[in-house]
Design a protein around this nucleic acid. Sequence first.
DNA 1: AATGAATGAGATTTCATTCAT
DNA 2: CATGAATGAAATCTCATTCAT
Lengths: 205, 205, 205, 205
Amino acid sequence: MSRVVKLENKTDERTIASSRVVKKNNIIKIAANLFSKKSFHDVTMDEIAEKVGVAKGTIYLYFSSKDNLYLEILEHTFGSIEALLDKEVNTASLAPEKLKKVLAIVIKFYRENIDVLKILSRDETHLIQEHHDLTEKWRLRRIELYEKIIEKGIKEGSFKTGNTELAALILYGAVGAVMVFYDPEKSPEAIAEELYSEIASGLFH
Amino acid sequence: MSRVVKLENKTDERTIASSRVVKKNNIIKIAANLFSKKSFHDVTMDEIAEKVGVAKGTIYLYFSSKDNLYLEILEHTFGSIEALLDKEVNTASLAPEKLKKVLAIVIKFYRENIDVLKILSRDETHLIQEHHDLTEKWRLRRIELYEKIIEKGIKEGSFKTGNTELAALILYGAVGAVMVFYDPEKSPEAIAEELYSEIASGLFH
Amino acid sequence: MSRVVKLENKTDERTIASSRVVKKNNIIKIAANLFSKKSFHDVTMDEIAEKVGVAKGTIYLYFSSKDNLYLEILEHTFGSIEALLDKEVNTASLAPEKLKKVLAIVIKFYRENIDVLKILSRDETHLIQEHHDLTEKWRLRRIELYEKIIEKGIKEGSFKTGNTELAALILYGAVGAVMVFYDPEKSPEAIAEELYSEIASGLFH
Amino acid sequence: MSRVVKLENKTDERTIASSRVVKKNNIIKIAANLFSKKSFHDVTMDEIAEKVGVAKGTIYLYFSSKDNLYLEILEHTFGSIEALLDKEVNTASLAPEKLKKVLAIVIKFYRENIDVLKILSRDETHLIQEHHDLTEKWRLRRIELYEKIIEKGIKEGSFKTGNTELAALILYGAVGAVMVFYDPEKSPEAIAEELYSEIASGLFH
DNA sequence: AATGAATGAGATTTCATTCAT
DNA sequence: CATGAATGAAATCTCATTCAT
C-alpha cells in the first residue's frame, strides 16, 4: 500500500492539473456529441457517464450541474472560434480576401465542431439565461465582424452597398444555410469562394 | 320527437363542431406561445392547462398526448403558410415581382405566427421523428419554391445565376436571418423590397 | 312539443318501472361481459357506456358508483343460482340423484353465466368488503349444500365417508376445476354423471 | 494498484452481488404480500416503497416496471415449487406413496408461500399476457404430473380409473380447495394422507 | 478522487364522478 | 331522463443530485 501511495505522489501538481483538464475536456467532447443528437432534457447524466466511462458522481467532480456542463461546452467552443477569427481579422488583407477567408474559417469550424454548433444553432434559448446570452453574443459577434469587413471594403472602394446592416444580416443568414445544407463534399474554401462570388456580384444581376 | 328535441337545442351540430374547433385552436394558440419560449420538455401540461384555464385532463380531450399537441401546432401552421404561398405561386406575375411577393408573405407570416415559427425553426430533431420530418419538409418546400422562381426568372431573362441551388439556399438563409433580426418597425413589403434589391444587384457590386 | 309530452305520458308507471329494470339488466349483462375479460380496474366506465350505447352519465342514473355496479352484477347472479338450487334441494329425490342433479345445475349455470362466474372465481376479494363477503357467502353456501346432501346420503345408507367436511370440500374443488377445464363439448348432465361416478366409487379403487 | 484497492474493499464482488439479491428478494417478499391482499391495480408503487422502507425510485433500480416486479414474483415462486416437485418425481417410490408425497409438498408449499400463490391462483388473465401464460403453465404442469402418477399407478396395478384426465382434474381441483380451506391446524402430511384415502377409496363407497 | 445506490420532486397520463344543459 | 364536457386526484415512471464508502 505504501508503495502505491508513493507512486501516486510522483505525479506533480502540473501533471495533476493537466490530467484534470484532459478529463474535463474528454467529458465535454463526449457530452457535446450527445447534446448534438438530442435535446438538453433528452440527454441524461447516466448516459453521459456511461459513454465517458466513469460513474455518474464523477461528472459532478468536474461540473457543478448539468446546466453548468452544458454551458461549459458552449463557452469552450465559443472561445476557439473567436481565437481563430481574431487571428484573421488582424491581418492586413483587403476586404474581399478577408471576407472569403472568414467565410472559409466559419464553414471549416462548423464542420469540425458540428456537434457543438448544432447545439448552438438549436434555439434552446430559454433553458437558462446564460445560454441565451451566449447564443446572442455569438450572433452579434458574427454580424459585427461582417459589418466591419464590409465597411472596410467600402473604404477600400471594393464594396458598394446601401445598407451595411442588412448586407451583414444577409451574409450571416446565407452562411448559416449554406454551411449546413450545401454540398458537403466541397472544401470550405471552395464553398466560401462560390458563396462570395454569388453574393458579391448579385444573385440575379 | 327527435325533431322536437332538435328544435329545443339551439346549438346544432355545426355549432357544436365549431365550438370544439374554437376550443382546440385556443389551446393550440396558448400552447404554441409557451413552446415558443421554452423547449418541449420545459413546458409542462400543468402549465398549459393553467394558462388555458382548464383542468389538466381537459387538454387530453382534445389532444391524445403532449407529442400530439406539439405536432398539431406545427401542422396547423404549416398548412396556413402553404395555402398562402400556393395562391401567390399560381399568379401570372413575372419572377422578380413574384419573388418579392413571396418574400413579403413569408416575412409577414413569420411575424404573425412568430410563436410557432420559433418552434419550427428550432432543431428539436430528435424529439419525435414527425417533428423532424415536418421541419425538413418546411425547408425543402421553401428552397424548392425559390428554385422554381429563380428558374422562371432565368427563362424570362430577368435573372442570371450560375448556380440555382446555391442561390436558393442563400435566399433561404438570408430571409431567415432578416425576418428575425432586421428592423421590426419596417413593413414586410418594405423589407422584402430591400432584401430583394440588395441580393439581386449584388451585395458588393 | 305538447304532443310529445302527451305521448310520453302514455307510458304508465308499470311500463316505466319495467323499462328501468330492463335497461338496468342490459347494463349488468354488458358490464359483466367486460368484467369477465378484464379486471375491475381495467374496465372503464367509458368502455361500459360505449358498449351499452349510452352516455357515461347515464350509468350513474342506474348505479351509484362503479363499485356498486360491480356488486349488483354479483348479487344478481348469486340470486339466480340460489333460486335454481333451492328448487332442486326441496325435491324428494334420493341423495345420489340429488347430488348428480345439483352438480349438473351448477355446471350448466356456470356455462350460461360464464362471464359473471369468471369474475367470482377471480379472487378480487379485497376491492371492497362487500365483494369479499359475497364470494365467501357463495363458497360457504355451496359447501353447506354438499354437506347436507352427503349427510342425507349417509342417513339413507347410500354414502359412506369418514369425513363429511373433507368430502364436501373435495366436491367443491373438483366441480370448480372440472366445469372450467373439462371437455366443453359434453353436456352438463353427462359431466355430472362422470364426475359423480369417478368420485363416488373412488378414483383409484 | 488495483489489487491494493481490492484488498481495502472488504465487500468483494460475490458479496455485492448477494447483497443485491438479498435486497431484491426483500422487495419481492414484501410486494408479494401486498399483491396477495389487493389486486394488481390496487397496490401502488408508493405503497410498496413505503413498506419496504425505500424511496419509490429505488424499486426501479431492481425492477424495470410494476409489471416486471409482478412477474418476477410469480416466476420466483414457480421456480421453487418446480424444483421441489422434480426432486420427488425422480424417486423410485410406488405411485400411491409418490402421490401422497406430492400432495404434501404442494400443500406445504402453498402454506409457506401463501402470499404468492394467492396471486397465482387469481385469474388476472388480462393484466399481462405473461401472467396468463404463467398461471396456465402452472396448472398444466400440475395436471400433467397427476396424470403421470395415475398412469404409473395403473401400470403398477394399484390404481384403477376409467378416465385419467378427469381423475387428474378432480385431484387438481380438490387439492386447491382443501389446501386453502381445510383445517389449517393439521400438518400437510396429515392432510395429504386424509385427502388421498378419501379420494382413492371413493368418497361415497 | 471516484463510485454508484439511493433519493424524491416532478412529469405525463388516466378515469371515476359531477353537473349544466 | 339523458348527455358528455370538464374535473382533478392519483398512478407510474424518470432522472439530476447527493453522500457514505
